[in-house]
Design a protein around this nucleic acid. Structure first.
Lengths: 142, 142
DNA sequence: TATTAGTCTATTAATACAATAGACTTTATA
DNA sequence: TATAAAGTCTATTGTATTAATAGACTAATA
């Protein structure tokens, strides 16, 4: 399951995606509309900014807005940012490969083989799941 | 990431799958060979027994052995048993549907649509990942 | 009937997640 | 240029989950 942090991040991103481009939106507005504790949301937005997904404008009339295009923000990136690797085993992560503690002999890598396939397919799907795609599907349903 | 419990369970199951059918294996043997705290393993094996995957024989010459065929034990079942639903959102689980707390308006279901697809594909893959498949792949590699 | 081995309940330790509090800095604009 | 609006940062707290441990109890077999 996704952590609350990731869920909040996705909800906030979708909310911002529906606003006119570059228009700064108040943290308080997002927090209220999406039912997110404001202070918690501040930290999340800050992380998204550090990751280059959002930008912010300070002072009166300031707020957060989407920096990247909705086509360029996908769920794989967001999940990795807050929940870490998508892989189910440390030995099948793309960047941070680590031998499983439990791995005693090489025969066990039948397990690895299977979970590598799961990871690859999941990542592919999550990369296709962009903000643009989410919004498109949201519209189609109504 | 899989919990240790699930990893231990998979390792134990693969270990038992390689033994002659119905031959009781000591908990201590599995624990030692797979580097699992014995007491922790006992609880895991008990859960697998309750789930109908393993059986046990008490007394001298006793131990645990696979009850189901290696074709009939898949990673989706094992993961659900110890880590709960495979879905990434409560609103896309098969059995225990629950509205997301964070879901404020129906438009957000673009998110649901995307994560439903992820869940379905993941479950399909994990169901194909049987013990038999894991062992087959393990052999192929060596 | 002694020994081996599985079953069960309770407790503790460690870690990660979620949320909160408050002080500080920056910026727009009246 | 003061001030109010708004973002940034650090630290702390509470809570839940995971991982592991301890020990008493029950059952079965040679």
């Amino acid at each position: 399951m996704l952590s609350k942090k990731t869920k909040y991040a996705i909800n906030a991103l979708v909310y911002l995606s529906k606003k006119p481009p570059k228009q700064p939106i108040l943290i308080s507005e997002i927090a209220e509309h999406e039912n997110i504790p404001q202070k918690f949301l501040e930290a999340i937005l800050l992380d998204l900014k550090k990751a280059g997904i959002l930008a912010s404008k300070k002072g009166k009339g300031g707020g957060y807005f989407l920096l990247k295009s909705t086509d360029d923000v996908n769920m794989a990136d967001v999940m990795r940012l807050f929940d870490g690797p998508i892989a189910l085993l440390p030995c099948v992560t793309h960047k941070y490969y680590q031998k499983c503690d439990e791995c005693v002999d090489e025969e066990t890598c039948g397990i690895r083989s299977v979970f590598l396939e799961v990871r690859n397919q999941t990542v592919d799907l999550l990369k296709k799941a962009t903000l643009a795609e989410i919004i498109k599907r949201g519209i189609l349903i109504h």
